[in-house]
């Protein structure tokens, strides 16, 4: 192999659908290191699935170049198919086959056996093994997801592509799933994972924020938060509906969005007009008003970047 540390290299990939009418990916470039747990974060329709399909050789890009473990996604199709594990967005196992049958089937398809590679999936598989004679269609979301991961791992792939593995899964199962990914990463497997849940960014080594086919930023979570810092006020009151209406009447308002129990408010000149803002709300008759300074999180940043992007 080359001394190049990249596991996945994407250069200026553009993809359109319907003869160029729908732009799915606009000149995307990424460099994912070997052994990295990399998160592709963005809402549905951002282009995540298109990018996954291009990297897993299922789709051809309109232009640009991409390699996986130095294999070209167009020319070296069969090499890539040998070394990648892929879990598509939709649950893609045979519903009428049991856990065990599914696993054996995918093992054979990838020219291996469950016995040979049991050590790789063991940790995950033991959790579903008691139900191995149950049909996949009768499993809960969390169990299906574990089975799908086992099937994607059974041939010990060098690179693992997981397209929205946690969508529609409850927070407990999601947490467990990310813990499993952390352990797979420790084995040296490169993992590219996409998710619409912004809070999962903290689980990744590096993340790319993707929106409308464009990558808005790529870095570690900390760096992204740092780079995109803005002064944010957390505002709370007795009646939230009235509060939001009042905030939106304030002249110097840049943005106001709900975050959990409070509204995150950004003013055009930051904290400088905080007192003026507070006075304004009191005059509007807002009761039980609480205003505090908050540290922006990844969703604040995503919203900020989205707005900046839509302004140009």
């Amino acid at each position: 192999m080359t001394s190049d540390m990249s596991a996945i290299k994407i250069e200026n990939i553009t993809k359109t659908y319907e003869k160029g009418k729908v732009l799915a990916l606009e000149s995307i470039s990424l460099d994912i290191k070997r052994g990295e747990l990399f998160g592709l974060i963005g809402p549905d329709g951002a282009g995540k699935t298109s990018l996954f399909r291009i990297l897993t050789t299922l789709l051809l890009a309109d232009s640009g170049k991409a390699t996986v473990e130095a294999f070209d996604v167009v020319k070296d199709l069969w090499d890539i198919r040998k070394i990648s594990g892929y879990m598509p967005g939709r649950f893609s196992l045979y519903q009428d086959l049991t856990i065990e049958e599914n696993l054996n089937f995918f093992a054979t398809v990838f020219n291996t056996t469950v016995e040979e590679n049991y050590h790789i999936i063991k940790e995950i598989y033991v959790q579903i093994e008691p139900f191995k004679n149950r049909r996949a269609g009768k499993l809960s979301g969390g169990m299906k997801q574990k089975l799908a991961l086992c099937c994607a791992l059974i041939h010990e792939p060098k690179v693992l592509f997981l397209d929205e593995p946690t969508t529609g899964v409850d927070p407990v199962s999601r947490k467990e799933f990310w813990e499993m990914l952390g352990r797979l990463k420790d084995r040296g497997i490169t993992i590219l994972v996409s998710t619409p849940y912004m809070d999962e960014a903290s689980r990744c080594d590096r993340i790319a924020l993707i929106q409308k086919g464009k990558i808005m930023d790529v870095d570690t979570l900390d760096h992204i938060l740092e780079k995109n810092y803005q002064e944010i006020l957390g505002v709370k009151a007795a009646n939230r509906y009235d509060l939001v209406k009042a905030i939106n009447q304030f002249d110097n308002l840049k943005s106001c969005f709900a975050f959990g129990g409070e509204q995150h408010v950004v003013l055009n000149d930051g904290f400088k007009s905080k007192d003026e803002f507070q006075q304004f709300l009191i005059e509007k008759g807002i009761e039980n008003l609480e205003i505090r300074v908050v540290e922006p999180d990844i969703e604040d940043v995503f919203i900020k970047l989205m707005q900046e992007n839509s302004n140009d």
Partner: peptide, 12 residues
């Protein structure tokens, strides 16, 4: 689950 997969701004 009305907001699954929707971007943060639209979700709000």
């Amino acid at each position: 689950e009305p907001t699954g997969g929707v971007d943060p701004v639209t979700r709000r």
